[in-house]
C-alpha cells in the first residue's frame, strides 16, 4: 500500500498551517490511490498536537523527547531519516518553510532520495509521483518526475493547498526512535522577535506597496505622494528592504508582514509567492507592472500594464481630478 508521510511542522506549541495543507493534499492523493496518510510529529510534550492530527491522518507517529523542543535540523534529521528508512513511504512531504529548507536537502542526501522543492502540486499516478514547481520567480511552471526510487521527497509551498476539515480518525503510535543530544556543532540559542517600528502597516486600510521596479531610492517619493493622496501607508516587497530603502517593518510577505487592507496597490512588484502570501487577503488589489505576465496580475482585481514612472504620476493627477 502507498503510504504518504507528512512531517508535521509546529512552532511555539502550535501546529503550522502548512501541516494541515499538506495533510489535506495527502488525503486527496491517498483517497485516489488507495493509500494511507501518516503524520510524523517530533517535539517535546506534543500529546495535544498529536491528538489534533488524528483527524487528518490514518496514523500519527510521535517521537516525543526533550531534545526536540526547538527545531534543530541536526537533531531532527537523523530521527526523521530513521523513520523514513523503516517505513519506506512512497512520498514524504515537508513544508517549504524556513524549517523545511534547512532540513529536506540534508535528509535527501543522507537517505539518497530524490528531492523536488517548493512544489505547488503533487500527482500520484499508479505509484509514480510527479510534481509541479515554479521557476523564474513564479513566471514558469516546471513539471518534474522522479527517477526510480521507492520514496520521493518533496517540499510543499505554504498555502499551495487549502486546509480541509479533518474527517479521519487515526491512531497515535509512540515511536522509541533514538534522539541524540543537541550536538556541539549546532546549538540553538534563542528566537528574536522582529523589532517594532514607528508605522504598523497591518493597521492601515490602504497600502501602496512598491517593489524592485522602483529602481532608485529617490523614486520612493512618487509612491509616498500617492499614499498621501489615498490616506494610506507605504509598504514594499523584499528587494526594497534588501536595498535598505525602507525598514523591515514595511515588508509585506512570508518573511515580513501579513496584511489585509481594504485597498492594496502593488507598484513594480512582480508577485513572487513569498510576497503574495502576505497580501492576497486584501479586499481590493491593484497591480501596476510593465510585464503583462507578472504573477501579481493573477492575484489582482485591477491591473495596468506599463511603465510605473508614467502611470503613477498620471494616476496622481486623475485622483486629484476625481476628488475635485
Amino acid at each position: 500500500m502507498n503510504e504518504i508521510l507528512v512531517l508535521a511542522e509546529h512552532r511555539g506549541g502550535e501546529l503550522r498551517d502548512v501541516t494541515f495543507e499538506m495533510l489535506g493534499k495527502a488525503g486527496a492523493l491517498a483517497g485516489a490511490s488507495g493509500g494511507a496518510v501518516t503524520a510524523l510529529l517530533l517535539g517535546a510534550g506534543v500529546r495535544d498536537m498529536a491528538s489534533r492530527l488524528t483527524s487528518y491522518a490514518d496514523e500519527v507517529l510521535v517521537v516525543d523527547h526533550g531534545n526536540l523542543t526547538d527545531f534543530n535540523s541536526a537533531v531532527y534529521q537523523p530521527v526523521i531519516a530513521e523513520v523514513v528508512k523503516s517505513r519506506e513511504p512512497s512520498l514524504v512531504m515537508v513544508g517549504h518553510t524556513a524549517f523545511g529548507v534547512d532540513l529536506a536537502p540534508s535528509l535527501a542526501v543522507a537517505l539518497g532520495l530524490p528531492l523536488a522543492s517548493d512544489c505547488i502540486d503533487v500527482v500520484l499516478d499508479g505509484g509514480a509521483v510527479s510534481v509541479t514547481r515554479q521557476i523564474y520567480g513564479g513566471k514558469v511552471d516546471a513539471r518534474l518526475s522522479f527517477r526510480d526510487s521507492a520514496t520521493a521527497l518533496v517540499t510543499v509551498r505554504a498555502a499551495a493547498f487549502p486546509v480541509e476539515d479533518g474527517a479521519r480518525s487515526g491512531s497515535v503510535t509512540e515511536l522509541d526512535t533514538p534522539v541524540s543530544d543537541e550536538p556541539a556543532f549546532r546549538r540553538f540559542v534563542q528566537y528574536v522577535e522582529a523589532a517594532i517600528g514607528d508605522v504598523d502597516i497591518t493597521k492601515s486600510d490602504v497600502i501602496i506597496a512598491v517593489g524592485r521596479g522602483i529602481k532608485e531610492e529617490e523614486n520612493l517619493a512618487l509612491v509616498e505622494e500617492l499614499a498621501g493622496l489615498l490616506g494610506g501607508v507605504v509598504g514594499c516587497s523584499r528587494p526594497v528592504v534588501d536595498a535598505g530603502w525602507l525598514p523591515k517593518d514595511r515588508q509585506v510577505g512570508s518573511s515580513g508582514k501579513t496584511v489585509k487592507p481594504k485597498l492594496y496597490v502593488a507598484i513594480g512588484i512582480s508577485g513572487q509567492f513569498q510576497h503574495m502570501s502576505g497580501m492576497k487577503a486584501a479586499e481590493t488589489i491593484v497591480a501596476i507592472n510593465k510585464d503583462p505576465k507578472a504573477p501579481i496580475f493573477s492575484e489582482a482585481d485591477y491591473g495596468i500594464v506599463g511603465d510605473l514612472f508614467k502611470i503613477v504620476p498620471a494616476l496622481k493627477e486623475k485622483i486629484a481630478e476625481a476628488r475635485a
Partner: peptide, 30 residues
C-alpha cells in the same frame, strides 16, 4: 533524482481586469 518533464506558463486564472489605454486613460479608469 528528479527529471524535468515540461515547462509551461502558469494557468491564467480569473486574473486582473486590465485597464487599457495610455497611462493617462488607464489611470483615469483606475
Amino acid at each position: 533524482g528528479t527529471v524535468l518533464e515540461e515547462l509551461t506558463f502558469p494557468p491564467v486564472g480569473e486574473g486582473a481586469d486590465i485597464l487599457e489605454g495610455t497611462p493617462s486613460e488607464a489611470s483615469g479608469k483606475l
